[in-house]
Nucleic acid binder design. Sequence first.
DNA 1: TTATAAAATGTAATCGGTTACATTTAGTAT
DNA 2: ATACTAAATGTAACCGATTACATTTTATAA
Lengths: 336, 336
Amino acid sequence: MVKMSDVAEKANVSKATVSRVLRNPETVKKTTRDKVLAIIEQLNYQPNILARHFRRSETNTILVVIPNILNTVFSHILGGIEHEAGKHGYRVLLANTNRQVEKEYEFLDHLKQRQVDGMILLSARMDKSVLYDVMKQYPVVLTADYLEGIPIPTVTIDNVSSGRTATEHLIKLGHSRIAHITGPLHLLVSQDRLKGYRQALLQNDLDVDNILIQEGDFTHESGYNQMTKLLALEHPPTAVFSANDEMATGIIKAAKDHGLSVPEDLAVVGFDNVKLSAIYDPGITTIAQPMFEMGNKAMEILLHQINGDDSCKKQYVLQNELVIRESCGAKRKNNS
Amino acid sequence: MVKMSDVAEKANVSKATVSRVLRNPETVKKTTRDKVLAIIEQLNYQPNILARHFRRSETNTILVVIPNILNTVFSHILGGIEHEAGKHGYRVLLANTNRQVEKEYEFLDHLKQRQVDGMILLSARMDKSVLYDVMKQYPVVLTADYLEGIPIPTVTIDNVSSGRTATEHLIKLGHSRIAHITGPLHLLVSQDRLKGYRQALLQNDLDVDNILIQEGDFTHESGYNQMTKLLALEHPPTAVFSANDEMATGIIKAAKDHGLSVPEDLAVVGFDNVKLSAIYDPGITTIAQPMFEMGNKAMEILLHQINGDDSCKKQYVLQNELVIRESCGAKRKNNS
DNA sequence: TTATAAAATGTAATCGGTTACATTTAGTAT
DNA sequence: ATACTAAATGTAACCGATTACATTTTATAA
């Protein structure tokens, strides 16, 4: 393997000059620079990146902690991170936690051992004080998830207002008995969507009937099961706001199996705007999270931190959007 | 940052001994080992992994080249890789090509610069001779995709027989006019599924009508469009074999929009068994690829190669399975 | 107890770029 | 032409763990 000293020797310059040609070309006179570059070309010299990483103690690699790669919301965000990282010559290391907190702690070691230059969390279940200590010392950004009470840089949407928007949309369509199937309620995201749902009802002088609020776990199956429960009620809802799209498909399935049709007998609004919501029949009205942009922004902020600019350590709230499809009935042809 | 020499000094031993305690504990006497471990604990010493990587020129990291993270088939495989890698203390670097060949070439440099110990390709568009040269020198495994004519270690399913199975299933259900919407035909995977479709028809004395074979690109939209074309035929098909599940949803949508119901008027079989096929209404009968296992196996083989065992450099064919749901009509209650 | 082999530990070179600092060369003004 | 500054290049220390080889300690046998 040809090394820097080989190039230096052949070019009649010192290793230092070769190094400069590669890292600070502008500090080397054009003639020598060209000479060195020619030799590099000729010998097909590839710098040993490991040596560089070691010496500079930086890796040009960042770590993304993902609770579940199979969830397309996360893979979209990952796509955004990847895109932005690639533009700046950074690599992305993947860390799948499968929702286990211990894994999160484990991956922290990568940061502490300087194996990566920074970390983007797509889930923060670890102890707040631990996370706080980490973020004081290392570049960290949180996205998709968020935490209260600690000033960690975060990129999200406003889930409360999104939940309100979704619910208000159903109210405007004339519904007054609106159910909500939530995500896992230990997640702030789920709590906030629920909060938005409540606000919308109250602001429109509608009762909040707790029986209409059921906790799901973001899976199709939980949507199906909880909806089945709701349909067995004496006064079943005429509309449902689902905390994500996959559960919405379960809800629709349950309604159909119960002999109801969507949106005629039951209006449904989902959340996330993953491809599934566009593909499903009926198309699912949903709140679009700018997933790719979230990833992009998170990476952008992380890069700033890595480069020593801490002015970006803030909370960023991106815009969400209501995407109207068939499942809510707004597009129904023979409808007022 | 406390380093190995600090530990050595405090423990009254040499750096070498500390190093051995960490890497070859059995070569150190129990008493000294315990003493050193205690100091390590006490000083909270974390070895500098970058120095180790540099010195040993190995990284415990592998690279996964993915054409598209958003495709759940790939993320399932990635999940399998991640799982197996984690078990052996390896990290997974992600490389998203977005189907650009240039990107594949670019990521090869990671291997050549020894930034990773090996590479798993989920797509091989690059020049065969280049790939061949690479695989002779470095640990490489191909999965999800495959190539003819070069002996690169590969993990796949038999797409020809899978295509045949899917088609035969429709034939057994009494269909004789069966269409096939293929994947992009520059992919061997798509060609093979088509081959299987042809074989099934021929072996059952049915004509292969080329008008019933339409090329899609694995998206819902292409399924929809191609099916719409097929339905406009004078003799439209009564069944369709789709080269993946997402296109199957487009096919079903097109049929519905055309006033047909699935499976009564049109039977559909998909491919992949991604969650979508289970969630969709109707549930899609499909060929299950053991995606997670493919990833697992690919990683396993790669690890063997990394450890210098080249006996595993073979082609591995995993079992696929027909998963019967509603879309093919086999489960139809009032059916013969 | 002494000789000898085996086990444990130490010494010091090494991996290959990077960079602070020293030195040389080129450029500019007087 | 001289003095002085800026640009270009060289020298050598350095990052921190690993490991071949040398040396010391311990165990075993005679």
